[in-house]
């Protein structure tokens, strides 16, 4: 069951990833990206990272995609649709993707295959670790978010008080 689900989620994620770059309408691309993220959450569940799976859906498929959709709506869609297929861009993309795949393969090859097993990924296990051993990184995360809030306000608000 695990194996079948793994193949189902992986193949479905790759297919929706392909549809992200193949569909001409940017809103459709964004929706297929949501689907790809949901299948990725399924893969996290198979790795017993339950908390990560639900966060993947809450934050990425929820909040980050809202931002993506807003950015798409800020753009001029018609100009994007008129763009032609360029052989040079296509070839360059293939080369970059191939180089990336080779690097990923190099890294994955050295990794132990059973890394995810035995690591508890439930919300309770994450919480226990976060509020005992990793308490300082947790507090630093709030500072990081504070910096991000200030940065967003400074960068994107034109008429500041």
């Amino acid at each position: 069951m695990h194996d079948q689900l793994f193949w189902f989620f992986s193949i479905a994620m790759l297919l929706s990833g392909l549809l992200v770059i193949l569909s001409r309408n940017p809103v459709n691309s964004a929706m297929f990206l949501v689907v790809a993220m949901c299948f990725m959450a399924g893969l996290f569940v198979l790795l017993e990272a339950h908390f990560l799976a639900i966060i993947q859906i809450l934050v990425y498929a929820g909040a980050v995609m809202v931002l993506f959709l807003f950015v798409i709506m800020f753009l001029d869609l018609k100009a994007e649709r008129r763009r032609r297929f360029r052989i040079l861009t296509f070839g360059g993309g293939i080369i970059v993707a191939a180089a990336f795949m080779v690097k990923v393969h190099d890294v994955v090859e050295d990794m132990p295959l059973v890394a995810a097993k035995g690591v508890a990924g439930t919300t309770e296990a994450v919480g226990r670790l976060l509020f005992t051993r990793y308490l300082l990184p947790f507090e630093v995360a709030s500072l990081l978010l504070l910096v991000a809030v200030v940065g967003v306000v400074l960068l994107s608000k034109r008429d500041l008080k």
């Binding site: 809450l58 934050v59 809202v66 807003f70 950015v71 709506m73 995360a141 991000a148 967003v152 306000v153």
Partner: peptide
């Protein structure tokens, strides 16, 4: 095209959403 002021709301939403994410395990 949407007014760009939606952008700051969406970005702030992400940041405070991540804040809420920490509340679940807590």
């Amino acid at each position: 095209r949407f007014p760009v002021k939606f952008h700051i709301v969406a970005t702030l939403f992400i940041l405070f959403d991540i804040e809420v994410v920490f509340l679940y395990p807590w």
